[in-house]
């Protein structure tokens, strides 16, 4: 049975609040209720779960939330996503992309990378997650295999980011159109330029902000592509 606007609004609010306050039960109940109504879950995901995550990002930037809070919010978001994604009518099929993502060899930190991956999952991208401590050639191999639009490289430490320029050079040589985004605590705009990447986030320790910026960067890339295709 389709919901009225008031009910939709109530559930959207619960989904968002559930994510912001890492209330798994609130998210689960609202998501199940939405699915039971038979309505398309697209709005519930974007205006509910993602809206909640955007608020988490704002609280993170304001230093009211820190990494543990973000991780817990991500868990709540995934609970809702797992319930609702199978019921989402996919639209905007033209603006989805394929992403290869991983933490470079020598680095076993993957929390930032996982948060970024979550945003890609939510946005409906086709994500190939190579995990952490990934040998450099693996990125090239996967990019060629999937012909991904984007490759995302993560490194948490200065001592591990040095593999990045090598991956970038390898991929750009074979596939100059592939966009490469890099992120992680030691990555600055200068480093990104020096390494030959197409983008990064200014505040690299802020993983969520980074993810949001990556999405924006991706949307811009897609707009460009669509403009070129004459749409």
């Amino acid at each position: 049975m389709a919901m009225d606007e008031a009910k939709k609004k109530e559930l959207l609010q619960k989904l968002a609040q559930g994510v912001t306050e890492f209330d798994d039960d609130m998210v689960r109940e609202a998501a199940e209720e939405w699915v039971a109504s038979g309505d398309d879950t697209y709005d519930a995901i974007f205006d509910g779960l993602v809206a909640g995550m955007e608020e988490v990002g704002r609280l993170f930037s304001a230093q009211e939330y820190f990494v543990p809070e973000m991780l817990m919010a991500a868990d709540s978001l995934y609970i809702g996503l797992d319930i609702m994604k199978p019921h989402m009518i996919q639209r905007y099929t033209g603006v989805r992309g394929t992403v290869v993502i991983g933490t470079v060899q020598g680095d076993v930190h993957d929390i930032g990378k996982n948060i970024v991956k979550m945003m890609f999952d939510v946005a409906g991208f086709n994500v190939f997650d190579l995990g952490r401590d990934v040998p450099l050639e693996e990125f090239l191999k996967k990019q060629l295999e999937t012909n991904s639009d984007i490759v995302c490289l993560s490194a948490m430490m200065t001592t591990t980011m040095m593999g990045m320029p090598k991956v970038i050079a390898m991929i750009k040589e074979k596939n100059p159109n592939c966009k490469i985004l890099i992120g992680g605590a030691p990555i600055t705009d200068d480093v990104a330029v020096k390494f030959g990447a197409d983008g990064t986030a200014r505040d690299a320790s802020n993983a969520l902000e980074e993810a949001v910026k990556m999405i924006v960067a991706l949307k811009n890339i897609q707009k460009e592509a669509m403009a070129k295709a004459g749409k």
Partner: peptide, 16 residues
């Protein structure tokens, strides 16, 4: 520990 003995890269050891 993984000292990355076989890697041609200069890497700090990590826990595998």
């Amino acid at each position: 520990m993984n000292p990355y003995a076989d890697s041609s890269e200069l890497l700090y050891p990590t826990i595998k």
